[in-house]
């Protein structure tokens, strides 16, 4: 098991199971509105299409994630935002019927190249899931697991240092420093999620993908994670999928709106929430029936 390869944990996205994504007759020739591309792209997707068997889940999406920025992806259930997020570290590879075309690059290098080591890729592009999913091990081991299998620590002291630093960056250290040998599963939901974030950052990723990281948490735990996301963006590039529009508005610098597998609009978060340019975006963020 790999700290960042959460085969056992990641749920299959809604797009894969029965929503009719082929009902998009009204927008066959669509163009993303706004600024999908940026100058300082850490990851860039070009003309990405994702299929689950014959279901076309993502259609011609081109989108950059700017370095040290938080990109929020919003949209109704089944719109493809999770599928797109999962294609950014090849998490979709674990779904046999899933097929990805187009180009996705990390620092300009194609992550779907045949010589790409996915274990290494997922160390560089870490992931945090909706439900906190700590390993059934001690708090210390949860964080130390990734660095150990990637050979990032050469001594116990070095490992201690990585564990402490990761827990500190995840704002969890003060709460767990005296119980590091207790099971991670014994923590509260919010603490478990921060433990998962600590685990993800322990292997020094460059990008962190978050799939609704707060949907199982209470408002206080949510506020702490959001605060944390804001701090983490100093060091990492973050892409977050969220159902909470207020959360997208609070934590991100750019927001992308997906609808039926299409990237409808991307822009500065402030602009999207005060003056969206596409009617579908407006209808979604204001809670109007589309």
């Amino acid at each position: 098991m790999n700290a960042n390869d959460s085969t056992a944990y990641g749920a299959v996205p809604e797009e894969a199971v029965g929503l009719d994504l082929n009902d998009h007759t009204a927008m066959d020739d669509y163009q993303t509105i706004g600024e999908p591309l940026v100058d300082n792209a850490k990851m860039s997707a070009r003309d990405v299409n994702v299929f689950y068997a014959d279901k076309h889940a993502i259609m011609d999406v081109s989108l950059d994630i700017g370095e040290n920025q938080v990109l929020a992806m919003i949209g109704p259930s089944g719109c493809g935002k999770s599928t797109f997020l999962r294609s950014l570290n090849r998490m979709n590879d674990i779904i046999p019927i899933c097929r990805v075309s187009g180009n996705i690059a990390l620092d300009g290098e194609d992550i779907y190249a045949s010589n790409q080591d996915t274990v290494l890729l997922r160390a560089r592009v870490g992931m945090v899931f909706q439900k906190p999913n700590p390993f059934p091990k001690s708090i210390y081991e949860n964080v130390a697991y990734g660095p150990r299998i990637h050979g990032l620590a050469h001594s116990k002291a070095e490992m201690d240092e990585i564990v402490e630093q990761s827990l500190r960056r995840a704002s969890l250290w003060d709460e767990v420093k005296d119980v590091l040998d207790k099971p991670g599963t014994g923590l509260s939901g919010g603490q478990q999620q921060r433990l998962c974030i600590a685990r993800a950052i322990a292997v020094s990723p460059e990008v962190i993908l978050m799939d609704e990281p707060c949907s199982a948490l209470d408002p206080i735990a949510t506020a702490r994670i959001e605060e944390l996301i804001d701090e983490l963006k100093e060091r990492f590039t973050i892409a977050i999928v969220t159902h909470s529009m207020q959360q997208a508005a609070r934590v991100s610098q750019r927001t992308a709106y997906f609808h039926l597998g299409k990237l409808i609009e991307v822009g500065d978060t402030k602009q999207i929430f005060t003056m969206p340019r596409h009617e579908l975006t407006e209808n979604y963020i204001t809670g109007r029936f589309g």
Partner: peptide
């Protein structure tokens, strides 16, 4: 309601 976009305006 935390209105957005045109509602907020």
């Amino acid at each position: 309601r935390q209105p957005a976009a045109s509602d907020l305006r």
